[in-house]
Amino acid sequence: MSLTVDLVVLTVRDDRLHVLLIERGKEPFRGKTALPGGFVRSREDSDAAALRELAEETGLDGRTLHLEQLRSYTRPDRDPRGRVVSVAYLALAPDLPLPVAGTDARRARWTPVADLGPGDLAFDHARILADGLERARAKLEYTTLATAFCPPTFTITELRRVYEVVWGVSLDARNFHRKVVNADDFLVATGTRRVPDVGRPAALYRAGGATVLYPPMLRAAAQHPVART
């Protein structure tokens, strides 16, 4: 039995939820789109392998991302090379630069999640991606994870767009503002404002020290569903 890691790396680009994908340069599934990942070496654990594979296949430094273990995938026939167990990871980050492919990846790119169809991904990566998306969407309800999609300082509008893009809903701006500024240690006002080219200056915030969002921001209470991105 062999052990691999696979990575679901999500970011918000151009107001759409994107996932990091590679084009496989080796068999099996040569030329097929897949999540970045690879085999765990004999002298490393899965965490170290996830960071290494992310750097080798995309040129991204996983230490700058929010990175957490998602789950393990053990179905006997999930890999045509034999019995291969995969430990999947979920990574979240603000809008990142274009990745650079390397090692066994021909090409690395950001792809809008909504543009992916059935059968587009190699192995069981469609299931892994679906699980990663649901983990991210669920954690936005009860944790402060939404700030992982934001730059160090951000406006309330930018934070609201994270929720709207990840959840695929339209949120009431005033109600959202009231909830997030009153949540315990969720946001910290920087005392500065961003002056846009057009419109009024907007107050800037940074992430507070809380990891649990209280009170929670429940998807069931979100208004005006729109097409998921």
Rank of each mutant, 00 (worst) to 15 (best):
M1H: 14
S2T: 13
S2Y: 14
L7N: 15
T11M: 11
V12S: 01
R13K: 11
R13I: 02
D14V: 03
D14R: 14
D15V: 03
D15F: 09
D15S: 13
D15A: 15
L17W: 00
H18R: 01
L21I: 02
K26N: 11
E27T: 05
E27M: 01
P28E: 11
K32H: 15
P36Y: 04
V40A: 09
E44A: 07
E44L: 11
A48V: 05
A50R: 03
A50M: 01
E53F: 11
L54E: 03
E57R: 07
G59A: 03
G62E: 03
T64I: 00
T64D: 04
L67S: 02
E68I: 07
L70P: 14
R71K: 15
Y73Q: 07
R75I: 14
D77I: 07
G82H: 12
R83K: 15
R83T: 08
V84P: 13
S86E: 12
L90T: 06
A91N: 02
A91Y: 05
L92V: 01
L92K: 00
L92R: 01
P94L: 05
L96A: 01
L96D: 00
P97Y: 00
L98D: 15
P99R: 00
V100E: 10
A101P: 06
R109A: 14
W110Q: 13
D115M: 06
D115I: 06
L116F: 07
G117S: 07
G117H: 04
G117A: 09
D120Y: 04
F123R: 12
R127H: 09
I128W: 03
L129M: 03
L129Y: 02
A130N: 10
D131E: 13
D131G: 04
G132P: 05
G132W: 03
G132Y: 02
R135W: 06
A136V: 11
K139C: 04
E141I: 05
E141F: 10
Y142E: 12
Y142P: 09
Y142L: 12
A148P: 04
C150F: 02
P151L: 10
P152C: 00
T153A: 07
I156Q: 12
L159W: 04
L159S: 03
R161D: 14
Y163R: 07
V166Y: 05
W167S: 05
G168P: 02
G168F: 01
S170F: 04
S170W: 09
D172Y: 08
H177E: 12
H177M: 09
R178D: 13
R178W: 06
R178F: 10
N182M: 07
D184C: 12
D184V: 10
D185M: 11
F186H: 13
T190K: 10
D197F: 10
D197M: 11
R200M: 15
A203R: 15
L204F: 12
Y205E: 12
R206K: 14
R206N: 07
G208I: 09
G208H: 08
G209C: 09
A210Y: 14
T211R: 13
T211W: 09
L213R: 15
M217G: 06
T229F: 05
